[in-house]
């Protein structure tokens, strides 16, 4: 019994089909599983293993290498404060101190209500807006203490619901063509489809 939903299994099979070798879909499928569950569950990793032809241990072994793949539950919003050199020179550690106080958690922890997980990030390539913060991999910056408080309010009130979908939903535009390597037509047909639609909570749920 698969853990991934029927829709997501179908998406997963289409993703596998666009790669010359199915193991290449391993990381995209982990993102897909996180889009469904918010994090990477044991059951989802078993599905990914079956779809890509590796063992569940290989999926975990690969996923645990990458910062974005969470093999433990995280909050609805993952707040990543960059403290690398450019942001540090812009006051990132002072901001991080405030963020810890405002959210009431330390780096690596999740708030009791499951709304926020706090991370200290390495450079996110937002140095022109230092200090910068990502929430579910959407950029905000430059931020000071007041700016961060407003951001938290907007996230809580739902004002940013479209800009910041819940954690795990990464790319809301789906591939509309399913061509196998070297041009052979695969499952989704060889005719170009309609451009992917932007849904409120994303094309991937």
């Amino acid at each position: 019994m698969a853990h991934l939903s029927e829709d997501n299994l179908e998406r997963a099979r289409r993703l596998v089909a666009v790669y010359p070798e199915r193991r290449s879909a391993l990381i995209p499928l982990c993102h897909l599983a996180q889009a469904q569950d918010g994090w990477l569950t044991e059951e989802a990793m078993e599905d990914v293993a079956e779809l890509t032809g590796v063992t569940p241990a290989e999926v975990r072994g690969t996923a645990s290498f990458y910062d974005m793949l969470h093999t433990e539950p995280v909050g609805r919003h993952v707040v990543a404060v960059c403290t690398n050199i450019a942001c540090m020179l812009g006051g990132a550690y002072e901001l991080l101190e405030h963020v810890e106080e405002r959210l009431g958690v330390r780096v690596g922890q999740t708030t009791a209500d499951g709304e926020f997980t706090l991370e200290e990030a390495e450079c996110l390539a937002g140095c022109d807006t230092a200090p910068c913060v990502q929430v579910n991999h959407r950029f905000f910056g430059p931020l000071d203490a007041d700016g961060f408080d407003r951001l938290v309010e907007d996230l809580a009130s739902g004002a940013l619901a479209h800009e910041v979908p819940r954690h795990g939903i990464l790319c809301r535009v789906e591939r509309t063509v399913g061509l196998r390597a070297h041009g052979a037509a695969a499952g989704a047909g060889d005719a170009p489809g309609a451009p992917g639609a932007h849904g409120d909570d994303g094309g991937v749920r």
Partner: peptide, 27 residues
Amino acid sequence: CRGEFALGLERLQQACNDAYALRALGE
């Protein structure tokens, strides 16, 4: 594409889809 570039990924994938529709990609 770097995974942390969520908006970049969305725009690249949209552009890829559009390029296929334009016949700038594919057969």
